[in-house]
Design a protein around this nucleic acid. Structure first.
Lengths: 187, 187, 187, 187
DNA sequence: GATGAATGAGATTTCATTCAT
DNA sequence: AATGAATGAAATCTCATTCAT
């Protein structure tokens, strides 16, 4: 594996457990079995590691949404597929979920490019899909952007709940959420 | 104003802007126009300030929910009132909202008592109300606990969106959310 | 009891347990059931408390030695009585012993008047008695000052050993020490 | 010189002069011409520096005593050699002596492993030698452990006296002490 | 490219002392 | 005389980052 990727993955595991501010670059290096200096050959500073983590995840979700957007299926099916892929992803990488949820709430002043994209652009893309569904009367008249954000926050929140809590399982949660959201917006 | 309260309020303003980890106790003291030592006469450490902030807000919301629980009105009205009071609250104290949202995602390892209560007990109380509504056939058959959490995450997320973003206003957001949630669970 | 005395006695108990540097003026005040400010009405600073503790003990031992010096008994008996009274004293006030031993080793730079007196003047007085005994051929030819100091260090050291260690008892230690020292200097 | 050793030696000089509690880690670093952080790369905290100082000296004296114990010479000669080596050592490193004497009296609660060893194990080893001499009738019937401790306290005390006081010289002190102790215990 | 010892600014926390009541 | 809340200088320790090897 290339070093940048190795560092990213190692960092995710530690940040998920400790949080970004309690994660020491030294520890990331140790866990990855490389020297601290090496980390700085691939990332200009600690923040950039977090930024890169978000960038990778942002790109993944951007792909999913772009692909869904043009597919010739109903919005309900699109929403269902989106949830499906999303929960699939986090079932595979619970640590990543933990990082995304924890660190996506940085205050404006210190926010990172990729984090900003993650919490602004992704909902915007979903909003466009909702707007289109609205025009096709697939769903009732809603404020698309607002609802898109609500959907994202719900998913993100439930994701963290599922990751942290042994009571819930992924499939059940996904189903229940799909029902809540779809009933909430359908015509 | 008593010192403990002064420190709490000052800390909220700064943490909202800078985030907990970028907030220096020194700065809180300066802003509050007291000495650093004085802060430590009222809180045993920095963490305890954050914990107290959550405790105060937790208690407020606990009161609201307990009051609503026993009132002789429909669940729909209860949900509506809860959203109403909640958005009212955060319109008055946007900084507090910002803190609650940002810092409610500490990783388990370092989580604080009051933060834990905030994200676990409050949804649990709402879940009980949902369960009761379910039995009275006011709403459809849902996993109460799961839905309660979803509602909390949605509210919390949208709250931060409204606080950070000038596009949305409180009333409109509250209305739209009420529709989404109610349609999502009604019979 | 007058306040100055109350503070002195309370301070001894705490310093014996914690050491001078780990003893907080606040704690002394609490233990004595007075306010911190009150401590500073009787002592100008923390150091002065320690100084006063030593002064009181210095005066006691000065009295003993001055009294012994002029008594019409053999040096052997004088030494015996000195050990007797000394070990008596520390059996009654083990905490005081602990303080005297611990804190009598401050480096020159920061030493206190009464501590200096304690470790210099007392041995000097004993030295005079030894010198006199030497002239009367009661003991062999020794360097009086040096032997006086040796005796003091031995006593002080053994005192702390006895206080800290349940193995040794006061009487036995006193006897054994008397033998060692007397055999060591007799003619 | 390796850094750990450099820090140890620098710390000894400063602690000898100022005392442990008045010694700032910052100052040790400055004197050693390294950064504060570097000190903490070699010692996990300030206490550990003091502990290490005692450990090194403890080990030295342990070696001497173990060597003497098995040598085929009279106890008188052993005692003489021990005093010889001891006073030699402290003549070469007066600052070390100062530290050992000053800081060996930490209150139980805060005592360090190596300090404890220093004041307990070394006398115990000497006690074994005394016990053996007693059985061979080289000396009179004494409480070995008690006498061993008395000897150590005498030596330690006199060492500090010699270091602090220009009146006494090492050779004379050693001779006088040898006489006092040997006469004190011989048959 | 890889290393990791060294750096030092800066953060948290302590605690002797003051002084208005 | 007694009080104790307030003070703030100062100490310990951390950790992101650098750079010579």
């Amino acid at each position: 594996m290339n070093k940048r990727e190795l560092i990213r993955r190692t960092a995710i595991e530690i940040i998920a457990e400790e949080g970004y501010y309690n994660t020491k670059v030294q520890i990331i290096a140790e866990q990855a079995e490389i020297a601290v200096g090496t980390v700085y050959n691939y990332f200009s500073n600690k923040e950039e590691i977090l930024n890169y983590i978000f960038k990778v995840e942002f790109d993944k979700r951007l792909d999913i949404l772009k692909r869904l957007k043009v597919e010739a299926i109903s919005f309900k099916e699109k929403l269902n597929l989106f949830l499906e892929e999303h929960f699939q992803e986090l079932e595979t990488n619970p640590a990543t979920t933990s990082v995304l949820v924890q660190e996506s709430q940085l205050p404006r002043k210190h926010s990172l490019k990729a984090v900003d994209d993650f919490i602004n652009e992704l909902p915007e893309l979903l909003a466009e899909m909702i707007e289109s569904a609205k025009k096709k009367k697939e769903i009732r008249d809603v404020n698309s952007s607002l609802i898109a954000n609500a959907i994202f926050y719900t998913i993100r929140g439930m994701a963290s709940k599922v990751v942290l809590n042994e009571h819930y399982n992924f499939d059940q949660t996904k189903e229940e959420l799909m029902n809540l959201l779809w009933c909430g917006i359908k015509n």
